[in-house]
Amino acid sequence: MSDPERKPVGIPAPEALALLRDMVRIRRFEERCADLYGQQKIRGFLHLYIGEEAVAVGALHALGPGDNIVATYREHGHALARGVPAGAIMAEMYGKQEGCSRGRGGSMHLFDAKTRLFGGNAIVGGGLPLAVGLALAEQMQGGSRVTAVFFGEGAVAEGAFHESMNLAALWKLPVVFCCENNFYAMGTAIERSESQTDLCAKAASYNMKTLRADGMDVIATQAAMRDAVAQVRSGAGPVFVEFQTYRYRAHSMFDPDLYRDKAEVERWKTRGPIHNLSNRMKAEGSLTEEAFLAIDAEAIKEVDAAVAFAEAGTWEPVEHLAHDLYTVNGVETAR
């Protein structure tokens, strides 16, 4: 593989800056999440995306505001890149009713109707049929929305993956299958769980166009996603995109990370998506160290404000426990 750090950025500087800014926002947000988890402000499961930022950022910057997003339990980055306010995300992690899911979902279940983020789904593969259905609804209603569904490589072992790929290809539905291959399903390496580790070969068996992108290079992820979205929006049917990436942190805050070689982690860190882009921009003269530090400072400020918003948030009254379950004649009922 050619050294990605020597590749030209190849897109206008303002666009590259927007990508860089979002990756830094996600990085700073999640580093703070890890701290807050240690302080027990955030509880439950917390899955960090650190290292994988180029995937969500590149992919989401290739979508339009009307498109549908279905994500996994490792979706803070997707929500941030999609434009869900950081305060609403942080408040959700705190369990406050000002959270984007009113504190009902937590870290794994970020929802936002306004930006068409259909969740944070924490059943591996669970979001795939849902995305196929959103795409079917779009096709039947004659609309032009594309549905992007994100899932890890672990999900390709699920029946839901295969059933969804078949349905989407059979009915030529407008969906982009975004496989975030970070090579480990929790602690199980892909070669220990898949007879065929070429994921594009699996997808191709469903008569679907496939693309593979370097998931550590946001320019590459965005370019691949733009190709995929253009094909899908043209009505030519679904596309499968494999983003090869790596998570720097453990699977979740509970994971002692005993299954990976530390040298392997360090090797991937040398390809970090943020410095990959910032170094290339600096080399081309479109970014100064001062400008980079300003982006970083701005991100930290945004996270500070998000934490303040979450701290100031309120608890949903316990009397609302059974709200949003049943409706009779338009009236909420609890049974």
Partner: peptide, 22 residues
């Protein structure tokens, strides 16, 4: 639908979210 109960029931759920009444 093909013999994919998980797939097509999930698809119906997604279609419902997308504005249909499956």
């Amino acid at each position: 639908a093909p013999l994919s109960e998980l797939g097509f029931v999930g698809t119906a759920i997604g279609a419902a979210l997308g504005g249909m009444r499956p």
